[in-house]
């Protein structure tokens, strides 16, 4: 019965005979609708509880003022309705002033760091994803060839990705320490985690090292969807290796590539553990996620506003990808391959 209910969704006559039917078509259709609703309901309730409720709750919270101190008793009192104050605090960098009103957030307050955090988050996203795509493609092309030890190579390539990010970050933390491997190896005295650009490069290097294998595997899966006879036909027609790459490999791997890039972009935009452990957010490496976590300790409601802003930013980026770049995540009729990628 449950198996039969799967293709339900509209009132069209089901094609073909159903075994074990309990009546004729007219009675079965409304009955099926009820069953369908019953089967889908738990999923919908679950989605509502784990997705819808938190989003709404976060938005409601973000409209509340954080608790303030009652000067007479020295105890916290509820902040009350804040309107959009929590949002303007971030977007316009206006912090509360003594006796009401606002002043521009001073350096050293979290409110002053929103735009720099947004900027650095996009910077990390663009640079790391670009590098990972190039290196990942290259690795995938190598892995796609048939040669001895290909299985071992594929396994080995995966190692950096299999290591938890927190462990990776700690490893690179020691590598980039002043007396660490990096400085000893190149005989330099760079303060990797103590000055701006080295700190950023350190994070980019560590992130690319860790997630290029992920890119490579997703692209490899796309490459393997391309049938070999297409290449053979191109060879017979006299196409060069470069032409085969540009006119066959690239267009055919594009759907998988876009999805891979989308995954990485969304992942990079919520980057937290790597900079948090490697630099603690110092030297202009505070990403949006780090800012959210720091704000949580200073006031939940402001943090809720910041999470909502972050959510909207990431949502927009995903939207642009799907709408304009044609990232086909849901794997509908066009290709079964992308479903396998997941």
């Amino acid at each position: 019965m449950a198996v039969q209910a799967v293709p339900v969704g509209d009132a069209e006559k089901p094609p073909g005979e159903k075994p074990g039917s309990s009546g004729n078509g007219k009675r079965r259709i409304p009955g099926q609708g009820r069953w369908a609703a019953l089967f889908i309901a738990p999923t919908l309730v679950l989605l509502a509880v784990v997705i819808l409720y938190p989003i709404i709750s976060a938005i409601v919270m973000s409209l509340q003022q954080d608790a303030g101190l009652d000067p007479a008793t020295g105890l916290f009192v509820e902040g009350g309705f804040a309107g959009l104050n929590n949002y303007t605090q971030w977007l316009l960098q206006q912090c509360a002033a003594v006796g009401g009103g606002t002043v521009p957030c001073a350096p050293g307050s979290l409110g002053a760091q929103f735009w720099s955090a947004t900027g650095i988050t996009f910077f990390f996203t663009i640079v790391t994803v670009a590098l990972e795509t190039v290196f990942g493609f290259w690795m995938a092309l190598i892995m796609a060839r048939a040669f001895k030890g290909r299985g071992i190579l594929r396994g080995a390539v995966l190692v950096p990705w299999a290591i938890p990010t927190a462990v990776t970050a700690k490893l690179w933390f020691f590598i980039f320490a002043f007396n660490g491997v990096a400085n000893n190896l190149f005989n330099t005295t760079i303060l990797w985690t103590g000055s701006e650009w080295p700190a950023r490069f350190a994070i980019i290097i560590a992130d690319v090292w860790k997630t290029t294998p992920f890119m490579a595997l997703l692209i490899l899966a796309g490459l393997q969807m391309i049938p070999g006879d297409v290449y053979e036909a191109a060879k017979v027609d006299g196409a060069s290796a470069w032409q085969r790459f540009v006119h066959i490999t690239l267009p055919l791997v594009k759907p998988a590539l876009i999805v891979a890039i989308l995954f990485r972009v969304l992942d990079a935009m919520r980057m937290y553990d790597l900079p948090a452990i490697l630099t603690g957010g110092a030297n202009g490496t505070t990403t949006l996620s780090i800012l959210v976590v720091e704000q949580i300790r200073q006031g939940f409601n402001s943090a809720a506003a910041l999470s909502t802003i972050t959510f909207i930013i990431i949502f927009l980026v995903a939207f642009i990808f799907i709408k304009f770049l044609g990232a086909n995540v849901a794997a509908d009729s066009t290709s079964g391959g992308k479903a396998k990628i997941k």
């Binding site: 784990v50 997705i51 938190p54 709750s57 976060a58 919520r270 949580i296």
Partner: peptide, 15 residues
């Protein structure tokens, strides 16, 4: 799950 991760985090907090 990726797209909604920050929201989910905020959500846990909200709960």
């Amino acid at each position: 799950s990726k797209r909604l991760a920050p929201v989910a985090a905020a959500g846990v907090l909200a709960l």
